[in-house]
Design a protein around this nucleic acid. Sequence first.
DNA 1: TCCTTCATGTAACCGGTTACATGATTGT
DNA 2: ACAATCATGTAACCGGTTACATGAAGGA
Lengths: 199, 199
Amino acid sequence: MSLRHALLGLLDFRPGSGYDLLKIFNTSLGYVWPAKQSQIYGELTKLDATGLIKVTEEGPRGRKQYSLTPEGHAEAVRWLVETQESRPQRNPMLLQTFFLGLLPREEAVKRLLQHADTSAKEYDALLALRDTEDWDRDMLSACGRLVLEHGLRQRVLEQEWARWAADQLLAGPATEPAGEAGAADAHESSTTGEARTGK
Amino acid sequence: MSLRHALLGLLDFRPGSGYDLLKIFNTSLGYVWPAKQSQIYGELTKLDATGLIKVTEEGPRGRKQYSLTPEGHAEAVRWLVETQESRPQRNPMLLQTFFLGLLPREEAVKRLLQHADTSAKEYDALLALRDTEDWDRDMLSACGRLVLEHGLRQRVLEQEWARWAADQLLAGPATEPAGEAGAADAHESSTTGEARTGK
DNA sequence: TCCTTCATGTAACCGGTTACATGATTGT
DNA sequence: ACAATCATGTAACCGGTTACATGAAGGA
């Protein structure tokens, strides 16, 4: 039920209509929590009904500007301090990696390197985004900057990992797809066999 | 519709019952694609109905062992080679980060450092897992090893990023100019504020 | 005998996606 | 006049979660 809190967070920062909020989801926020128009409007109606937000102004085309009620603000803060968001972390790409053994080895390697390539492109896009915006306007954009940095590091990780994984497959067992386990050979070839801890 | 393909992938590797598959989801596979008992059984029934899998053996307690049909295998391979899995990437933790500005600064910093701590613990757990299993039995466990390595690197990233982000907040806006908050701090090696590219 | 594990199924619910539908206002 | 944008709403569907329900087989 995180969309609820995303809306509260945005409205706490600045009042706005469903349409305003949608635009934010389509740009910055959508990177970490996508939401569609229909869902946003529905959730706003519910939030209004439960008294966490209310209509504070009405505009031209039936536009309804929402603001947080005190209860809404309290709920937003409560969510931030109390909630330990854990990871369901459904990762389709890792799911596919899990089954890469079904493919001929070169095909699997190709797949991993494609992932590296995609990540590189995403990295560039994020970098461009970082250099166009100014990130010191307010607290929201300052925090957006933190999130963006996470995205950048994530893309670096994806590239490094994918290349490492491809190496592993090449250095690995000499079996055909769906075949028997072959002769084990000592790998642990490169230095990156173990992620370093920052603990 | 990824559960479908997860099941196909598992059954391609080795025939099994819903119960068998469930155990796999509760351990290794659950890290990247959780699934509940009810969903697994439902999906197996559907896959059977569409002819991608079939019952090849019946056991003691109504146990039904499923195997892939040729069409099922083809579909599994097609999914692996054709599908470009992109990221909806809903990340609750980054969503919260986005709104950290609602909290007093020290509270926000605390939140980030908690995240670092959690990630450190998860890192240790994964490391333990890595050292108990043997990862050279077959192609499936070999690929599982790749996925696990991704998890390790991910946890390292989370820690480094969270500490960097905490620093950013402390060094950031001077909205409350209550003295110098640790003026000259030598950042740890990798925290330049810019993720290095591996392109 | 009794408990645990094995083994499957189904129904209600919820968050999110797709698609359809409507109409007012503004700028060219 | 016309197109683009602003602005809201709703209904069908789908994947996933929670919870309930049943019973057979094996080991103590």
